[in-house]
Design a binder for these strands. Structure first.
Lengths: 152, 152
DNA sequence: GATTTCTGATACCAATTTAGTATCAGTTAA
DNA sequence: TTAACTGATACTAAATTGGTATCAGAAATC
C-alpha cells in the first residue's frame, strides 16, 4: 500500500528546495539537478503547483519559480490533494449512491475516522516544518563531525 | 488518494459475510450474491485468504469456506497487507539504499510516524468489531421502525 | 535583433497495476 | 454418475504511473 506517488514525492522535495532559497527565482533545471528529479517530469509537476497557487513563476531568461506562500503555510496534505486527490478509502463508498449493502457502510464509518486522522496529520506537516527538521539534522551532523575531528 | 482497492474491499466484505454465519461452510456463490461481488473475482480473493490462513475451505458439494479464526482476531490491517502490502510511503524511501538526498529522509521520518498510526488503527478494526457495529446499526433501525409504526 | 535561458501547454509513450473473466482439473455429497 | 463445490492458473481491457518530447512564447543579454 503505497501512500505517496512519485509526483507528490517530487513535489514535496521541490517545495523544500524552493523553501530553502529565500532569494529570487529558481529554474526547474536547478531543482532537477539538486533533487535528482527527471527534468521534464519536474516541469509538469511545477506547472501543476503553479496552477494550484503554491508556487509562482516568471518566464524568460533569469526567470524560474518560487514559493507563493510561506513554507510554514504549505501543508503536505495540500500537495497530496493536488496530485492524488483527497484521502479516501475504496471509492465505491463515496461516489455514487451510498452502497446498497450495509456492511460496507460500517467499514466506511471506521475508515472515515482513520482518514480524518491521516488528513489531520498531513495538514500539520508543512514544508516549513520539514525544512526546520532538515536544518536540525544538518546542524547535528556538523557538531558530530567537529567532535570527531577534535578527538582525532 | 485511494486507501483500499477493490480486492481489500471485497475481502473485508466477504469476511464480514462469513463472520455473520456461525454455521458450516458457505459457498463463494452465496457470498458473491450477498455482497454483489463478481463471482470469479471473489473466488480468487477467497483463495488468497485461504492461502493466508484467514479462511479455510472444504472442496466438493456441500463444501465452501469459513473463517479460520474468530472474527475478533482478524484485523483489517491483515487484510490490507495481504492484498496491498504493508502501508508505506513513497517506495524510494524504503527499498534500495536510503535516499541519497537528505530532505527526503526528513519527509520519510514524518511519514513513518503517520504510517505507524494508520497501521495501528487498522490493527484495531477487526471483522468482529465491524460485525458488532453492523448489528448495532440494524438494531437501531429496527427500533426506529417500530416507533414509527406505533405513532401511525 | 539575434541568441540564450527560461516557462506554458500539451501530446505521446511503455510498463505496471487494477478489476474482472474464463477454463480446466479434481473433490465430495447425494 | 452427476451436480455443486474448490484449486490453480491463464488471459484481458482499461486505467494509472512515471517519464519523454516538442513547440510556442517571454524576457534578459550579447
Amino acid at each position: 500500500m503505497k501512500v505517496l506517488n512519485k509526483e507528490t514525492d517530487y513535489a514535496v522535495r521541490a517545495l523544500i528546495s524552493l523553501g530553502m532559497k529565500s532569494d529570487g527565482w529558481v529554474s526547474a533545471k536547478v531543482i532537477s539537478d539538486e533533487q535528482a528529479i527527471p527534468y521534464q517530469f519536474l516541469r509538469r509537476i511545477l506547472q501543476e503547483l503553479i496552477r494550484s497557487g503554491l508556487v509562482e513563476s516568471k518566464e524568460g531568461a533569469g526567470g524560474g519559480v518560487r514559493l507563493a506562500k510561506e513554507p510554514g503555510l504549505i501543508a503536505v496534505a495540500e500537495v497530496i490533494e493536488i496530485f492524488q486527490g483527497k484521502v479516501q478509502l475504496s471509492e465505491c463508498m463515496f461516489r455514487k449512491q451510498l452502497c446498497s449493502n450495509r456492511a460496507n457502510c460500517v467499514l466506511r464509518h471506521e475508515i472515515m475516522r482513520i482518514e480524518k486522522m491521516v488528513n489531520n496529520e498531513f495538514s500539520q506537516v508543512t514544508i516549513g516544518k520539514l525544512i526546520d527538521d532538515l536544518k536540525a539534522v544538518e546542524a547535528m551532523n556538523k557538531t558530530r563531525q567537529t567532535e570527531q575531528q577534535e578527538t582525532v
